[in-house]
Design a protein around this nucleic acid. Structure first.
Lengths: 331, 331
DNA sequence: GACAGGTGAGAGAGCGCTCTCTCCCGAGAG
DNA sequence: CTCTCGGGAGAGAGCGCTCTCTCACCTGTC
C-alpha cells in the first residue's frame, strides 16, 4: 500500500489535481467550500506531499547543508562550539521550514563528496563552518552557483558572506584586564595559526602588550585541553616568573589550569588566567575561569538570517558581533 | 543556464538516455567503448544526477533522519554525548553513501514537524535519540512505515530495535569499586528517573548496596553540572558523614566535585567520587575522575549498522555494549 | 543454412507534482 | 438583451530520471 497522491486527494474531494495543489500550497483563488472539501480529503487520506516530485518541478529543495569542515575529530566532539552552532542554526532553520542536511568534511574524500553533493543541487544553500586556512572547501564552494555563508571569517580571502565575533577586540579586552590588575609578565597560549580565531586572538594579545610596553611570551596550542596543558608546561619552563596567561580558548585554559596545579602554582595568586569563549565548563574549573563571552547562539542565528536573506536577493554584508569580559576568580 | 541532464549526456555521447542511465548506475551490460563515451560526456558536461528525479522514480531518498528529541537545550550543547553520536553516525552513514538530515525535536510543535516529515517519505530510515520516558516520539515513529532504530533503550516499551550500553552492569562495577576500597557510606547522585540511563544506573547502585548490606543515600539530578552541584550539597546536608558518592554521569560529577571543594571535603581522602561516561573533561577535573567508560562511538556505529541491516531485511535485535571502569584519582 | 539463445541498446511509460494556459460562468455595464 | 470582464476551476505539459519491454544483431548448434 503506497502513500496517497494528490490525484487521490483530488478524486476524493471531487476536484481536479490542479485545484488540490492550489489548496495544498495555500493559494487564495479557491472557493471556501471547495477548499474545505480538499482539506477534509487530505485529512482523511493522511496525505503528505511528495517532496521529490515537488522539488523536481520547483527546482527548490527547502534544505540547507550545514558543512562542518574539521579534520580534528576530537575538537568536534569536545568543543561545545559545534553543538551549540548546530543546535541554534537548526532551530532557526526549522522555524523557516528548511531542512538541515549535516555534512562532515574531514578529509579529501569527504571534501569531494560534499562538493559533488552541493553542486548536485540537493540543497538551496550552504552554511559552512571551516576554521582552517588550508581548507580548500570555502573557495571550492564559492565557485558553485549556490548561496554560501560562513561561520567565522574564512581564513582564505574568498567572497563569501560571514558572521564572526570580534576576536581581536575580545583578546585585547582580556589582556588589558590582566594589565589592569597589575600583572607584569603576561604570557599567552595562542590557538593554531592557520585559524582566523587563532591569529586574531594572538594579534589582540600583541596589540595590548605592545601598547603597555611588555614583552610577549607565546606558546601555541591547537585549541584542545591537552595542547593547553602542554603549552602551559612549556611556558613555565621558558619563563618561570610569569604571573599571568591569556589562553586563546577555554578548553586550553582547562588544560593550562591543570598544568599550573601540577607545577604548584596558585591561581590567581601566582598566575592569573584568562580564557576565551565562556563555555559552560568555565564556571566549574578550579578556580572558575575569567573569560571572554561571545554570543555563539546569536552568531549562528545571524548566519541563518544572512543565508535566508541571500535567497531573497538580500545583501551579503559580513556581520561582526561583540565580545564581553566575564570576570570570575582566575583573574 | 541550467544543469546538464541525462538527456544532454546521452546526446553528447551519441547514445540513448537509457544507456546513459545504465552507465551512471554502474550496470555491467554496457559495451566498454560506449561506457567510456558516456563517462567522457559526463565529465565534459559536469553532469550530476538530479536526486529529486531519481528518488521520485526509485522511491528511495538515500537519506536518513537523525532525530534528537531533547527538551533541554543546555544538555544538548554541553553533553559531548550528542556531538560524538552525531559525528560517529554521520561518518558511518557517509561511507554508506547516505545523507544525514538532522532534526531537533524539542517541543510539541517540532514533534509534529518531525512526524510529518518522516511520514512524508523524505527519508529511508530514522535514527532516534530520545531519552525521556514521557516522549511520545518513539511510539509515534514506530507506527509509521519507516525503519527506526533507537540510540539507547526506549523509555516506553515500544517495538524499536536499539543499541545501548550496559547501564546496570556499569553502575554495579562503579559502586562495587567503592565498596572494595573500603567505603562505608556510599551515596549516589542519580540521573532523571524518566530516563532509562537514570533508572538503570540507580538500579545498579541499589543492587550493590543491597548485596553489601549498606544503606542507600540518594539525591536526584538532571545530568547537568549544575544539578550535580546542587545534589551534592543536598547529600552533604542529609548525611555529613558520607565517604563516597557514585554520580550517574560525569557532567554532574564535575558539579559535585565543585560542591565538595566548597564544603572543604578532600577528594578522594574524605569523599571518593565515581562518575559515568568518561567524557574528555573527566581527565581534567581536580582530581581526575574515576568513571565508567562506554563506547559511544561504537554504539553510534552499531546503530547505523542496525538500521542499514534493517533495509536489507536484517533482524532488529537489540545490541548491548559493555562498560569499563577507568580508575583515576577521585576513587 | 536455419533457428534458438543470448546480449546489448533504444523506446516509452510513468514517478507525483506545479504551473501555465484555457475555458466556463456569473456579474455588471451599456 | 448582449457584450465584456474577471474570478475560479480543469486540462495537460513537463520536471529528470529509472526500468520494463522490445528489438536488433551476433554467436553457436545441428
Amino acid at each position: 500500500m503506497r502513500r496517497p497522491t494528490l490525484e487521490a486527494v483530488a478524486a476524493r474531494a471531487g476536484v481536479s489535481r490542479a485545484t488540490a495543489s492550489r489548496v495544498v500550497n495555500g493559494q487564495t483563488t479557491v472557493a471556501p467550500h471547495i477548499r474545505d472539501a480538499v482539506l477534509q480529503a487530505i485529512d482523511e487520506l493522511g496525505y503528505v506531499p511528495n517532496s521529490a516530485a515537488r522539488s523536481l518541478v520547483t527546482q527548490r529543495t527547502d534544505s540547507i547543508a550545514l558543512v562542518i569542515s574539521e579534520p580534528g575529530t576530537r575538537v568536534f566532539s569536545e568543543d561545545p562550539l559545534f553543538s551549540t552552532v548546530i543546535r541554534s542554526a537548526s532551530m532557526e532553520l526549522e522555524s523557516a521550514n528548511k531542512q538541515v542536511v549535516l555534512m562532515l568534511a574531514s578529509n579529501a574524500k569527504s571534501h569531494a563528496r560534499v562538493e559533488r553533493y552541493i553542486s548536485g543541487g540537493h540543497v538551496d544553500g550552504v552554511m559552512l563552518i571551516s576554521m582552517h586556512g588550508a581548507d580548500p572547501l570555502p573557495s571550492a564552494l564559492s565557485r558553485l552557483r549556490v548561496p554560501v555563508v560562513s561561520y567565522g571569517r574564512p581564513a582564505v580571502p574568498v567572497d563569501i558572506p560571514f558572521v564572526d565575533n570580534d576576536n581581536v577586540g575580545g583578546a585585547e579586552a582580556g589582556v588589558r584586564h590582566l594589565v589592569e590588575i597589575g600583572r607584569r609578565r603576561i604570557a599567552t597560549i595562542a590557538g593554531p595559526q592557520d585559524m582566523i580565531a587563532g591569529q586574531d586572538r594572538l594579534a589582540g594579545y600583541r596589540n595590548v602588550l605592545r601598547d603597555s610596553d611588555r614583552r610577549s611570551i607565546v606558546a601555541v596550542g591547537d585549541f584542545t585541553r591537552e595542547s593547553g596543558a602542554i603549552a602551559m608546561r612549556q611556558l613555565l619552563g621558558d619563563d618561570p616568573g610569569l604571573d599571568a596567561v591569556f589562553v586563546a580558548n577555554d578548553l586550553m585554559a582547562v588544560g593550562a589550569l591543570q598544568s599550573l596545579r601540577q607545577a604548584g602554582r596558585r591561581v590567581p595568586d601566582d598566575v592569573a588566567v584568562v580564557g576565551f569563549d565562556d563555555i559552560e565548563a568555565a564556571k566549574y574549573t578550579e578556580p572558575p575561569l575569567t573569560t571572554l563571552r561571545h554570543p555563539v547562539t546569536d552568531q549562528a542565528t545571524a548566519m541563518v538570517k544572512l543565508l535566508l536573506g541571500l535567497f531573497e536577493g538580500g545583501p551579503g554584508d559580513p556581520v561582526i558581533l561583540p565580545t564581553e569580559l566575564v570576570i570570575r576568580e582566575s583573574a
